[in-house]
Design a protein around this nucleic acid. Structure first.
Lengths: 165, 165
DNA sequence: TATTGTTATACTCTATAACTATA
DNA sequence: TATAGTTATAGAGTATAACAATA
């Protein structure tokens, strides 16, 4: 049974296996919860966070941004409006195409993004505190494999520019 | 670097380790994406899905529901309003406390929840298709441990009624 | 007085459809 | 005509504050 309540019964002795499906769903809620909490601290939505993440190494147009975020372009208009109003991003009109704009991060946005990443590292660090170092490495490899498989299934045609890491 | 763009660069030979933090974030986006896609098919939000999940084996009051969902009680009023309008849940006034209501699932809601779970099992099954059976068991155990640790951190005082599994 | 729940209000986020301007 | 983007509109979802009814 896939548990979608985000609540888990636990006991003192800790060897419970939730089963793969529940485990992944619960884990995803835990991670998204951490993301959401930090985002809320900065009065950001998760989509705003993703926007900043995308703009770290790209200056996409609105349409392109819509594709990245799986949103309608009109939704992106509002999203960028609000982020721009807060001084996190900026629109620049394209020199090549009079219709197009390029969205980029401001210094302020970049600073916030960096701060966010640091907090996220702390929060997720706490989350995996209970695992031994070898277990962490195992989890990292397995989670990476599933995540990468998922990306391959979801984005069969999209080739992405290399990300700084 | 925690990647929050939900996009992953991948190559043909697949042994990449994203690092634990990115791996968990990416994995959580993949799982939540699956949840969100199925929810959207049924015109449900993720919160509506969680509501149905909670009501599988409880008939909580509005306040209690707010606590489960980490929402304000006024938000739950609207949430339950919309679900009730669609015939998925119902309010019943409590016999003991004249102020309170009890929210429960309708037959229609229960049927939808069952269907949802089946779809989720299929989708998540596809997600872990690339793992060997022993790797799946390992992932299950490790993910369970992190998820349960997270639940313990997040809900130190809350004791939950046993869930059917 | 405290608690349960709803209402009023305001904002974010989202999509659809219609629009403008450029290609 | 097609594409890039915005605007108008409508609805879900959220929180805060004020309210009603019951305990």
């Amino acid at each position: 049974m896939v548990c979608v309540t985000n609540y888990v019964k636990y006991t003192a002795e800790m060897t419970t296996d939730l089963g793969l499906l529940d485990a992944l769903v619960q884990l995803s809620f835990a991670v998204q919860g951490a993301l959401g909490r930090i985002a809320a601290e900065h009065e950001l939505s998760l989509v705003q966070v993703r926007l900043l993440g995308i703009l770290r190494d790209r200056e996409p147009g609105m349409q392109e941004l819509a594709k990245f975020l799986s949103l309608d372009k009109s939704s992106v208009t509002g999203l960028v409006d609000r982020a721009e109003r807060r001084g996190l991003v900026q629109r620049e009109s394209s020199s090549e195409d009079g219709r197009a704009v390029r969205v980029s991060m401001t210094e302020q946005g970049r600073a916030l993004a960096q701060q966010f990443v640091k907090q996220m590292e702390r929060e997720l660090g706490a989350l995996v505190e209970g695992l031994s170092e070898p277990d962490r490495r195992r989890l990292s490899v397995l989670a990476s494999q599933v995540a990468l498989d998922a990306a391959r299934q979801a984005l069969p045609g999209i080739s992405l520019s290399p990300r700084k890491r």
